[in-house]
Amino acid sequence: MRRHFALTFSSVLSIAIALLISMLMLVLAWNVSSFTTNIEEELIVQVSLNPTLDAAGQDELEKEIKEIKGISSVRFSDKEAELEQLIEDYGDTFSQYEGEDRNPLYDVFIVELEDPTQIDAITSQISKMDGVIEATYGTDTVNTMVQLFSSVRIGGLVFVAALICLAIFLIRNTIKLAIQVRKDEIQIMRQVGAMNWYITVPFVLEGLLTGFFGALIPSLICVFGYTALYQALNGVFISELFVLKSPYPFLLYVCGVLFLIGILAGMFGSYLASRKYLRWTR
């Protein structure tokens, strides 16, 4: 390793860059994933019931809704309770509707979902049922946001996977160069009858070290950078809805993943490179 410092350094650096981007994507995807969970917890479908629906019809409807796949709970709330909630949330302007026969609201079922991505389908299914005036959920923005986050999450993972491949490729190339540099040495080793593993192992170890140092740099950046960011933003991003993950133990996971990727990619890349060379000839 000492003998071709520049080469090793450049490969450490390229792996560090690949892992740095991986790290950013990981942190982003992980946080977005927890944002989504936060928002999803607030996603409910509000089913307004036709006032003419009698108690039996209401039970029937509740059973029907519960049978839909992906529903976690159905809760009944009458129009008085709904009005109280409204007054509580938005102020006394709505108090004028209090009292006999002046309440314009409907009795509702509050439906919670297991899988928020199904919210659109489930809502339209419910709204077609008998005795339902309308079924609504949050707003379109919330829905778009959920979709967006889920694609960011998937996109992030795909990106990380691509970068892992890149890291393997980079290490493989570096080790290939290193092998070129040490071709004479290897040739002599082969000539005097060194076993293939004897020749391969040092390169694999070198790849391991390269991967380790390559992971060290982004890990340090991640630990200090994220902690600083977390403190600067007070643990939330823009609004209370987006709660950042607390640095501990989250950062441990991220660094663990980085080292794992770095070391495995390093060993695997070197193994590929040296194997390929040794297979050229008998």
């Binding site: 003998r3 004479d184 040495e185 040739q187 002599i188 000539q191 005097v192 009858g193 076993m195 008998r282």
Partner: peptide
């Protein structure tokens, strides 16, 4: 018909000398 991985073991019985020496300069 020597297997690939048996070649190193076999080679230990054979010394080779080449025109261009092939010594490690370091």
């Amino acid at each position: 018909s020597l297997k690939h991985r048996k070649v190193p073991q076999y080679r230990r019985n054979i010394g080779c000398v080449f025109q261009d020496y092939r010594l490690l300069p370091a």
